[in-house]
Simulated assay, not measured.
Amino acid sequence: MTDVTPQAQPDEQPDTQGETIGATGDAQDSTLEKDPADWVSGDDPMTAAQRSYLDTLAKQAGEELPADLSKAEASQHIDRLRSDSGQG
């Protein structure tokens, strides 16, 4: 999972004409993706959604992971496990 932060100013709408989100599975603008190590909240504990998804992926991969991961660590494991399973 990646942390996506809008680049536009609060009053300014980004130019999204022709872009899509969702079903394509790929972000149209890779500049919006941040390395989890650079997240402001990356050191916070993983979210409940991350924990649930990571639990599912780890079980499918036959792995055990620590339950006290940060948001950034959880995101990196999710990306790795998805890639290893061919989902990412």
Rank of each mutant, 00 (worst) to 15 (best):
P45V: 15
S85A: 13
V40I: 03
Q50E: 12
D68N: 03
R82V: 01
V40N: 02
E64H: 12
D79P: 04
S70N: 11
D3F: 15
A48C: 01
W39E: 06
E12R: 12
D3Q: 12
D55C: 03
L69G: 03
E63S: 15
P14L: 01
M46N: 06
Q60A: 11
L57T: 00
G86M: 11
I78R: 01
M46H: 07
S85M: 12
S30N: 09
D38L: 07
P45R: 14
I78N: 03
G22L: 09
M1R: 10
Q7E: 10
D84C: 11
K34L: 09
D79M: 04
A58P: 00
L57Q: 04
E73K: 08
T31M: 07
A72H: 02
T2A: 11
G25D: 05
E64A: 14
E19R: 13
E64N: 15
A72Y: 05
S83K: 07
Q60Y: 08
G18R: 01
V4N: 10
K59D: 10
E63K: 15
T16L: 14
Q17G: 02
Q9P: 01
D38Y: 02
Q50T: 10
K71L: 14
Y53D: 05
R82A: 04
D11I: 06
Q7A: 11
G62H: 02
R80E: 15
S30Q: 12
I21N: 03
E19Y: 13
A72L: 01
L32S: 13
S85E: 13
M46Y: 13
M46A: 09
Y53V: 01
T47G: 15
S83I: 13
M46V: 13
A49G: 01
S41L: 04
E73T: 08
D35W: 09
D11G: 06
G18D: 00
T24M: 04
S70M: 06
Q87L: 13
K34I: 02
G42R: 12
A61L: 13
P36I: 03
G88R: 00
K59N: 07
W39F: 13
Q60V: 09
G86L: 09
D84A: 14
E64D: 15
V4L: 12
K34A: 03
Q17E: 00
Q50S: 11
S83F: 00
D79R: 14
A58T: 08
A67Y: 05
L32W: 14
M1T: 10
Q7T: 10
K59M: 03
R51I: 03
P10T: 15
D55L: 04
D35Q: 04
A61W: 12
T2Q: 08
E12Q: 12
L65M: 11
A37H: 08
D35P: 00
G62E: 05
V4K: 08
A27E: 08
L54Q: 09
P6D: 02
T31R: 12
S52E: 10
H77C: 01
G86H: 10
E73V: 03
D44Q: 07
A27C: 04
G22D: 15
H77P: 00
A37D: 10
P66D: 07
D55K: 09
D15I: 08
